[in-house]
Design a protein around this nucleic acid. Structure first.
Length: 294
DNA sequence: AAGAACTCCTGTTGGC
DNA sequence: TGCCAACAGGAGTTCT
């Protein structure tokens, strides 16, 4: 489900529920998601207060007053549900919860001291959670290899060119590589390449001159990466299938896709007249307009 | 050692 | 209607 805009949308939705609240009760319903939960997962959360909820790439980071950081990744199908205390407010340490048809994949339950229950649901279990110490976060194996934040000042045409210089792989693959830019996924790479008029099949090395400086292509691409992510965050992310933000709000950026999921349709660029194609790169679908993406 | 292929898991969809 | 193959927003691991 989630690329950077969706994770950021989730972060904003959870911030008001988690920050300032303590974990009154935690239920971990299975030993693992994609990976095993860390040792003493429940015990390390219980009783501690959330000081801040941040995001790094597609990771959500809950910074606790205990000095621990709860690292969460949603994988493909991970989502959070929030149940707020209403008329029948729960007692401290109780979950607001009803098991139902769609609760089979509710894997972790958090009862917060403000009365809200936060539920992590993940059908495919490609998501995962871990705990790190705040002072060791940057060195954590999940964090240490990540590239720059695409919306940060560190992503410049020069940076991208330097990282892509000599790369014998496609632009599509290079942009999906979290070690170069951290947070892009299949949808927004397709959309950014479309907005930049660049073919996903072009070699990544085409972003750099022989000296390793940014070409005009890199100069075009970088602002479009930022723009498409900003537009998507503004729209509350993209809603595909039954994804929804924590409070149930639906993102609507999917209505703004120019190429993703639009195989066979006419290119939206006025006067282009091309037909959107779908190809497979690295086992994943790529959508693009062969006419205006070169 | 870079780059591509494979893998994890379940649910949904589209074609016959 | 039913069945089955293809596909899905990710990324660590294993191959070549």
């Amino acid at each position: 489900m989630p690329e950077l805009p969706e994770v950021e949308t989730v972060r904003r939705g959870l911030e008001g529920v988690l920050v300032g609240a303590r974990f009154d009760r935690v239920e971990q319903r299975r030993p693992d998601l994609r990976f095993p939960f860390p040792d003493r997962f429940v015990e390390r959360l219980l009783g501690t207060r959330v000081a801040a909820l941040s995001r790094r790439a597609k990771y959500l980071l809950a910074h606790m007053e205990s000095g621990d950081v709860l690292i969460m990744h949603l994988g493909m199908s991970g989502r959070f549900k929030v149940l707020r205390a209403g008329a029948n407010a729960q007692k401290p340490g109780e979950f607001l919860y009803e098991a139902g048809e769609n609760s089979r994949h509710d894997h972790v339950l958090f009862a917060m001291s403000n009365g809200a229950t936060v539920i992590y649901n993940d059908a495919r279990r490609f998501g995962f959670m871990d705990l790190a110490r705040e002072d060791g976060l940057a060195a954590h194996k999940l964090m240490s290899g990540l590239g720059v934040e695409p919306l940060g000042a560190d992503l410049t045409p020069g940076y991208l060119a330097a990282r892509c210089k000599g790369k014998r792989t496609t632009l599509k693959a290079a942009l999906l590589d979290q070690r170069i830019i951290a947070g892009l996924g299949n949808i927004y790479v397709c959309e950014a390449l479309y907005r930049s008029g660049l073919s996903p099949r072009r070699m990544a090395s085409a972003l750099a001159t022989r000296a390793g400086r940014a070409t005009g292509r890199a100069e075009r691409l970088v602002p479009q990466i930022k723009a498409v992510l900003e537009d998507a965050i503004e729209a509350g992310g993209s809603t595909l299938r039954d994804y929804h933000a924590p409070e149930g709000d639906l993102g609507y950026f999917q209505h703004s896709f120019a190429v993703y999921g639009r195989e066979g349709m006419e290119c939206v660029l006025p006067g282009c007249g091309g037909t959107i194609r779908r190809i497979v790169q690295g086992g994943r679908s790529t959508f693009f307009c062969p006419r205006c993406q070169r």
